[in-house]
Amino acid sequence: MTKKAIFGGTFDPIHIGHLYIAYQALYKLNLDKIIFVPSGNPPHKTERIITDSKLRYHMIFEAIKGEKNFELSSYEIEKRGLSYSYETIEYFKNSEKDTEWYFITGVDCLMEIETWKNVDDILSNCKFIVFNRPGYNICDILKWKEFIQNKYKKNIEFLDIPLLDISSTEIKNMIKNGQEVYYLLPKGVDEYIKHKELYI
């Protein structure tokens, strides 16, 4: 059976930390494919200004161009209304029924998963994979992970990998301040940002 993972996020902008996580998941979980799904209209970020979805889509396209194990989906940015993870997972699961689906997300999402819509459907329709992020205590993560697993009777896998302390917010602030960021971005993304004059 084919094993594919959905890797969602705003990717505003996508950076080398995202590719690092994707490759770590690819190798450690023996996945066949990782599908990057830029968020369209996420319900948890309605008050935050997010770069136009088409621009974020093209940045991801530049970042993963030529990577045979990575794909890009426009499902959420073409979908009307709010983007809910349970709907995204159902969409991919229904499109390829003979595929074992994984869902990759940061530990920050695990910590707030009780606020997500249809949590039980999410955990039932995929293997939920969580990677660590700077600022979180391992003991707190594992304790909350155990609580969610016991409550929903579903397994969650914690992908404990070395951290790359890179954030999209920091990159945007650096660009705004006129600092160079090409070393934090995948090939092609820096040129695209400069060409479109983003984040200045």
Rank of each mutant, 00 (worst) to 15 (best):
M1E: 10
T2R: 14
K4W: 15
I6S: 08
F11W: 03
I14K: 00
H18D: 02
H18S: 02
I21E: 03
A22I: 10
Q24D: 07
L26R: 07
Y27L: 15
L31P: 11
I34N: 05
I34D: 00
I35P: 09
N41E: 15
N41H: 12
P42H: 04
P43M: 01
H44W: 05
T46M: 14
T46L: 13
I49K: 15
S53G: 14
L55Y: 01
K65C: 05
E67L: 09
N69E: 04
N69R: 04
N69Q: 07
F70L: 01
E71S: 13
S73G: 10
S73W: 04
S74H: 06
Y75S: 10
E76F: 03
E76M: 06
I77R: 01
I77V: 06
K79W: 11
K79H: 14
Y84Q: 12
S85Y: 15
S85T: 15
I89A: 08
N94I: 08
N94L: 09
D98M: 11
T99P: 09
W101Y: 14
I104W: 08
G106F: 07
L110I: 14
M111Q: 12
E112L: 14
E112V: 15
E112S: 13
E114Q: 12
L123A: 10
K127D: 04
F128D: 07
F128G: 12
F128I: 11
V130L: 04
F131T: 08
N132I: 15
C139Q: 11
W144G: 07
W144L: 14
K145H: 12
Q149A: 11
N150T: 13
N150D: 10
K151A: 08
Y152C: 08
Y152T: 04
K153M: 14
K154N: 10
K154H: 03
N155G: 09
E157P: 08
L159Y: 10
P162I: 11
L164G: 02
D165N: 12
I166W: 04
S168Q: 00
T169F: 01
Q179A: 08
P186V: 02
K187A: 01
V189W: 00
V189E: 00
V189Q: 00
V189A: 00
E191F: 02
E191A: 06
Y192Q: 00
I193P: 01
K194Y: 03
H195Y: 05
E197L: 04
Y199R: 01
